[in-house]
């Protein structure tokens, strides 16, 4: 019981959960809104983590100040992929299923290329750096500043994004496209521009998430895949395109992971994550908060 009530555990679960929520939000832009099955999403998180690591070790720039730059790097990769691979696919493919299947294969190719290029450039050995690791104690809770910052920054960004989507004209454009793409076109929404925007935002957010992840754990070229899986769990449980649902699902996943490892043993972690994943798709493909057949 003591274990369950430990503030340390609660804090770890919140940090991990907020990172999952942030990663899920990024995927929601690309998969939730334009139905491109981005299984390279976790690899963009990896690129963001390496960018943060590089900026810190080479230039001494704190990832906190480097965030805009890091987001810019991954956003540019997103824009490049949009123009290079997906623009024509999006314009010419009429069936959604064909588009999803093709995007899966294309992103799989991208994922393999990104992982192996990074492994070629920076070797496969895991890396880490020490930054902002002062311990702050409040009550019985010891936390490093870096993890606290990861928590605060990711929650702030997720919140800002959900406000942006609710109230800005761009966000309304996205909602319109999710509801009915053809009708959105007719009322004058520039579908191409909104899609490009989704790529830039989704990939940029993935980069920021990667920078925050690099503050809390070791990084390696093959670290991305578990994050891709986590992101899919988050957006499926939270509901496609549903940002606030995704926040709850992300935190939930963080809690499941941290508490189950604490209660049982670390070896069951993967079984649990994939178990939740499989159960989510088989039992609640419409999400925890969605209605059946929407």
């Amino acid at each position: 019981m003591d274990l369950l009530l430990s503030p340390q555990l609660l804090f770890s679960a919140l940090v991990l959960g907020s990172l999952y929520a942030l990663i899920g939000v990024g995927l929601n832009f690309v998969y939730g809104t334009i139905r491109l099955l981005n299984i390279a999403h976790g690899d963009l998180v990896m690129i963001g983590a390496y960018a943060a690591f590089g900026l810190f070790t080479a230039l001494g720039l704190s990832p906190m100040f480097g965030l805009p730059l890091i987001a810019g790097i991954t956003a540019m990769i997103g824009a490049g992929l949009y123009f290079g691979l997906f623009k024509r696919q999006l314009e010419n493919t009429t069936s959604v299923e064909q588009l999803e299947a093709n995007s899966l294969l294309l992103f799989f190719g991208v994922s393999v290329i990104l992982q192996n290029t990074m492994a070629l450039l920076f070797t496969t050995s895991p890396r880490a750096y020490q930054h902002l690791d002062y311990v702050i104690s409040i009550g019985g809770l010891d936390m490093t500043l870096s993890r606290l910052l990861a928590l605060v920054v990711s929650l702030t960004i997720v919140f800002a994004i959900s406000m942006f989507l609710k109230f800005s004209i761009y966000g309304l454009g996205i909602s319109a496209i999710i509801q009915n793409r053809d009708a959105a076109k007719i009322v004058g929404i520039d579908v191409g521009r909104v899609q490009l925007g989704s790529f830039i935002l989704g990939f940029g957010v993935a980069g920021i998430a990667g920078a925050l992840v690099s503050l809390t754990e070791q990084i390696s070229p093959f670290m991305g895949f578990p994050f891709t899986i986590a992101a899919f769990v988050v957006i499926i449980l939270g509901g496609l395109g549903n940002i606030s649902g995704g926040i709850i699902a992300g935190i939930l996943l963080g809690f499941i992971e941290i508490y189950s490892v604490a209660l049982t043993s670390a070896t069951y972690r993967s079984i649990l994550i994939y178990g939740v994943f499989v159960a989510a798709i088989m039992l609640r493909p419409q999400g925890l908060f969605g209605k059946a057949q929407t």
Partner: peptide, 20 residues
């Protein structure tokens, strides 16, 4: 019962689940 992308990631998830 699930189609399209859900089937794709589901089959992947099942194989990883069995592996672990």
């Amino acid at each position: 019962r699930v189609r399209g992308p859900y089937f794709v990631i589901l089959t992947f998830g099942i194989s990883e689940l069995v592996k672990y």
